[in-house]
Simulated assay, not measured.
Amino acid sequence: MNRKRASILVDASNSGGGSNILAQYLNDKLVEFGHSCFFVVPKQFTKELNRSYQINSFGPFDPRRQAAIEKLATQYKPDSILSFGNIPLRKRFPNCRHLTFFHNAYLLPGLAPKAIPLRVRLRILAIQLSIKFLKVNTDTWIVQTNFVKGRLAKWLRLEDGKVVVAPFFRPPQFSIDAQNINHKLDLFYPSNFSYHKNHCNLIRAISWCQDHNQRFTLGLTLGEVADPSFQSALNSAISNGADIRLLGTISHDQVFSVMRESKAVVFPSVLETLGLGLVEAATLKKPVVASNTNWIDEIVSTDYKFDPSSPESIGRTIIRCLSEEEQKPAIRRIEDKIDVVCDLLSGYAC
């Protein structure tokens, strides 16, 4: 297929965690298709991109961030601008398509966890107001699931065709041979810390298993977490004899390696837009122990589901999964649609 070659500016200045991985993958594919792309990324962005401009990690409301984007847009004169961080740009540019990648479901009204601190709730409210006010500056919204599409379209009263479901994720870079793996962890949870990620209940579940004479090794991609509830749950579990290992921030390739060598992947999150770890675990044909929520069935199919609000339910499901002689691998239900994203940015799909 011959695609139109386009110049594309991507504002990924507020990316982090899984969105960094997606930004890298998008960059690689745009270059592969012959597009001229330019990424604006935070200074702590560690991956090498084809062409990028690093700025300080300004907040979404900082005028310096918008000024940097305006300067580059004026200089670069792109055919398309993609806002990679949920919030549309504060102004439109002439002769240019404007797209927004919405990938934080907890920004949708009514979906943020109830236990989050007031300061976080107020920040979410401010972002929601900004999205509603600036929605006129986006021609097309890109989301990763139909669950998010329905919620976003209803909230912003978007017309049919304004929201496109196009999940994208980089496949594992190595061949999969599930028969020749030396498991080093019983359970692996690849996720940064956020309240909707539900780390505390997972740790309490591991402690519950310990109380019932079931000892499992849990690996978390976390370092120091300055959250009192997390520290309390972690200290209590460790004092109870639980084997919980904080692996720190590891590379995406290292995540694949640890995941491949683990017996199962656990995903207690109460809300996700996609759940990159879920997709990757299913791609690697790993058993997945996950929350029984209405968004997860669109992403993967698994026999091991629990109530994410109950450490006992999490613990019982972990025990059931790891005690089976032949664990059932999760089945991935979505496909990589990076081609659709690239076509939207180039104008091919318009």
Rank of each mutant, 00 (worst) to 15 (best):
R5M: 11
L246Q: 08
G347S: 06
L30H: 07
E335W: 01
I176M: 05
Q327A: 13
I81E: 02
S232E: 11
Y53M: 07
L111E: 15
G34E: 11
S57E: 15
G150E: 10
V279E: 09
G241S: 04
D79H: 12
V270T: 15
G150Q: 10
L9H: 00
P60Q: 05
M259Q: 12
G150T: 03
A205W: 07
F38C: 06
W208I: 03
W208L: 01
E335F: 01
I142R: 02
V120P: 03
S15Y: 09
D303E: 15
D160T: 12
V148N: 09
T293L: 07
L218K: 01
C321G: 05
R332W: 02
P329Y: 13
K328H: 10
I127E: 13
Y106E: 13
P63C: 07
T138R: 03
E335M: 02
R316F: 09
N14A: 06
T145W: 05
L284G: 04
K132N: 02
E32L: 11
R260Y: 10
G347Q: 03
A264T: 01
K285Y: 09
S323V: 04
N27A: 10
L271E: 12
D160G: 10
K114C: 04
N292W: 04
F93W: 14
L156G: 00
V266Y: 01
Q24W: 09
H196E: 14
F168M: 11
